[in-house]
């Protein structure tokens, strides 16, 4: 096996549990789909149950906290100190927008790899040229993901300053655990994207196998995005 395919294998495994020992892609499979793609789908199925359990717990415990601070309402502690409603919806709307845009960039990253083999017309403008740059779009996706994580760090820090930690009450425990798990998933996704970018820079991503590598990363990335939409709606928007 060549170094190229070996490195390609590397990418299939960039994320912990759903490691994929790909047989070389010319291997016959029953469905014609690559094994790695099937495995990622089953992994995503499992992840759905993980987040469903976390989100359900948040919803079950909603309004059950004995003491504040609370997500959507003010709280005055026995000493008379007033804690404002914790959730900052405008800021989180901005971070949600950033994460959604990262999915857009991810789609273009995959398209860029798929367009690699196609000849570019000499009259092509900057957009056509940019569409071919998988490095640009991978970097853009990873950066947008990182900005989202930056928003989350800011949010967590400011909550702690306002008196809400993971130990404070049921809201703190469920909120930090749920969004923390999501943030950890985004972090893994950013690392995955960075390693794709690293491969792209070292040898260039092109061809069916590399398209698959980007494709399964994109599946994961979009999934993490969709989960955030559920979290944003259920935790932030619904009072």
């Amino acid at each position: 096996m060549t170094a190229q395919t070996a490195a390609a294998h590397a990418q299939g495994h960039a994320h912990g549990h759903d490691a994929h020992d790909a047989h070389e892609h010319h291997h016959y499979t029953t469905t014609g789909l690559d094994n790695r793609k099937v495995a990622v789908w089953t992994f995503i199925g499992s992840e759905c149950m993980l987040f469903a359990s976390l989100i359900s717990t948040y919803l079950i415990y909603k309004g059950k906290s004995v003491i504040g601070p609370f997500p959507h309402t003010e709280w005055t502690d026995p000493a008379g100190k007033v804690y404002k409603a914790i959730l900052d919806i405008p800021v989180t709307s901005a971070s949600t927008f950033v994460l959604l845009m990262s999915s857009f960039a991810m789609v273009l990253a995959l398209q860029a790899v798929q367009l690699k083999g196609k000849p570019l017309a000499p009259t092509a403008g900057w957009w056509e040229r940019l569409q071919r740059s998988s490095q640009f779009w991978l970097l853009a996706t990873a950066l947008l993901g990182t900005v989202f994580l930056g928003f989350q760090s800011y949010e967590f820090t400011s909550f702690v300053h306002e008196g809400l930690t993971i130990k404070t009450n049921l809201f703190g425990s469920t909120f930090f655990t749920l969004t923390g798990f999501h943030g950890a998933h985004v972090t893994v996704g950013v690392l995955w994207l960075m390693s794709l970018l690293w491969i792209d820079r070292s040898r260039g991503l092109a061809g069916k196998n590399d398209e698959l590598l980007v494709d399964i990363c994109a599946l994961y990335w979009h999934f993490v995005d969709v989960v955030w939409i559920a979290i944003f709606t259920l935790i932030y928007l619904i009072k």
């Binding site: 415990y61 059950k64 049921l170 703190g172």
Partner: peptide, 14 residues
């Protein structure tokens, strides 16, 4: 390990 309140009845846990 970290003192969260998921199963702490006094904190209102179910």
């Amino acid at each position: 390990f970290f003192g969260t309140t998921f199963y702490a009845i006094a904190a209102g846990a179910d």
